Amino acid sequence: MIFVFILALVSKSVLSDTVTIRADEWYPINGDPNSNKPGFMIELAKAVLEPAGHSVDYQVMPWERALDSVRKGSHDCVVGAYKEDAPDFVFPKNHWGLDSTGFFVNNDSDWKFDSLNSLLTKKVGVINGYAYGEELDELISNNPSVFSGLGGNDALEKNIKKLTAGRIDIIIESPNVMRAKLEELKLSNVKQAGTLGEASPMYIACSPAKPSSSNYVELIDKGTDALRASGKLSEILARYGMSDWE
């Protein structure tokens, strides 16, 4: 009996990990690690990983650094990832929401998005390392005089300041994220001027360098199904003013 008890403890210590999640702040997907509302993907990660005996260590860092550290295996997963962000990462089958690419301008602007070419006569703010879709990514890469990229955890807030100061004309951003940031900053002088294409699935995605990633995404897939069946998924999303995407 003593041997069985010790074996159980050893097995639990081997199987129980601290899963490290890194990403730039992208609320309501993920936000302040010390908040009681750290973002719905962080709450989902805890809801599926903690019952399996794992703990979650979530911290913010610039997106490019987060991708690099997870790719190398220094950390386990990122959240809020499109498959285009890191096609080499280990993705679960279940995505954690749909999001689109929006274009935002000052309220007094009469510009509206009608094609990618309509961006080329403007100054456009983007965030370094973000994937905006293959065609737009290529346009950004080929036109550095048009697209101005920022990095760091406060890149969106800096872009909003540049927009309201007239230093750029357009910001490209997730509508959900932009609405949350404008509400946080108590700003009402920015409006959406269009959307690019269809909404794309967002994921938690794990390191291609760590064998444990396959176990984590299996837990994520099974856990997501269980959360949906129990109603817990909808409960978590409702805390952020969102609803189930299925």
Rank of each mutant, 00 (worst) to 15 (best):
F3N: 14
F3Q: 11
F5W: 15
V10T: 14
V14R: 12
D32H: 00
D32W: 09
F40E: 07
I42N: 02
D57S: 12
S69R: 10
V70P: 08
R71V: 02
C77F: 13
V78F: 02
P92L: 15
W96K: 07
D99T: 11
D99W: 02
F103Q: 01
F103I: 12
N107W: 01
D108W: 04
D110H: 08
K112T: 06
L120C: 06
T121V: 12
V124A: 08
E134H: 06
E134R: 08
E138T: 10
N143P: 09
F147W: 08
G149K: 06
G152W: 05
L163N: 01
R167D: 03
E173Q: 09
E173W: 00
N176F: 00
K181C: 05
L185F: 04
L187V: 13
S188Q: 06
N189R: 06
A193Q: 07
G194T: 10
T195L: 12
T195M: 11
S200T: 14
M202H: 11
C206W: 05
P208I: 02
A209W: 07
K210W: 09
L219H: 00
K222F: 09
G223I: 07
T224F: 10
G231M: 12
E235C: 06
L237E: 02
A238S: 15
E246Y: 14
E246Q: 13
